[in-house]
Amino acid sequence: MRRAWGLRTYAIIYLVFLYAPILLLPLFAFNDAAIIAFPLTGFSTRWFEQLWTTQALHQALRNSLFIASITAILATLLGTCAARAGTMPSFPGKRGALGFVMLPLVLPEIVIAVALLIVVRQVLDLNLSNWTVIAAHTVICIPFSIAILNGAFQNLDPSFEEAAMDLGETRWGAFRLVTLPLVLPGIISSLLICFIISLDDFVIAQFLTGSNPTMPVYIYGLTRFVDALPLIMALGTILVTISITLLIIAEYFRRRGVARAGFKDTGGFL
């Protein structure tokens, strides 16, 4: 290994900067005091107990889970189509079409939220509901799904499916027996990432949520009450734990996909 101690030290400091907020979360979530400040006053699980009994929170959580699940499935389905098309022969306009689908990556989120709000309320005259949030979340999740699945599909030798067909399989059989197992880790990883994005999103949800808020909208409402701060800490601890767990699972599947396809791991989700 090369020396580069300067860079190494910098990297460690940078990681501390990245992780500082997350590491503080459980510290205050399990702290007895109602004020978020040092010194810590003592261990307590009372904030978690309070969460357990807050009905409005449970409703928000159910909404968020429902929205995130449907979004993950929709975005991954559409992302799979696009990613697979990306590896197939080009036709006029293919690049443009795929580029357009990736557009939300470079659009300010608030613009997407506002634009959809106008369509839903003014053009279609529909009521806001969980489904309007799902529709918008799917728009912003598709690019991420495509980015993840592109890796999976581009690692595939185009001869794999031909070889399967050459050996007597139909086109569908070739996809099911060869392509699907090889990209499955990518699909799982896409499902999880889209799930997390949807679960986390606040901006779009605030604009498009119906009468029942999603989890982030609910948390945002809580931030206005000083005495709710420890509650947010407890809730944040739970959410971060869930996110990290899902992320580790996603990374596990992504790596397994890389290993299966027999390629060098170059790492990273994006």
Partner: peptide
């Protein structure tokens, strides 16, 4: 006759050995 019904089989340049 589609590829999967032809009495031909192929050895691909990349060999296309299914990695899984």
């Amino acid at each position: 006759v589609p590829a999967n019904h032809r009495p031909t089989n192929m050895v691909f340049q990349s060999y296309a050995i299914f990695p899984h």
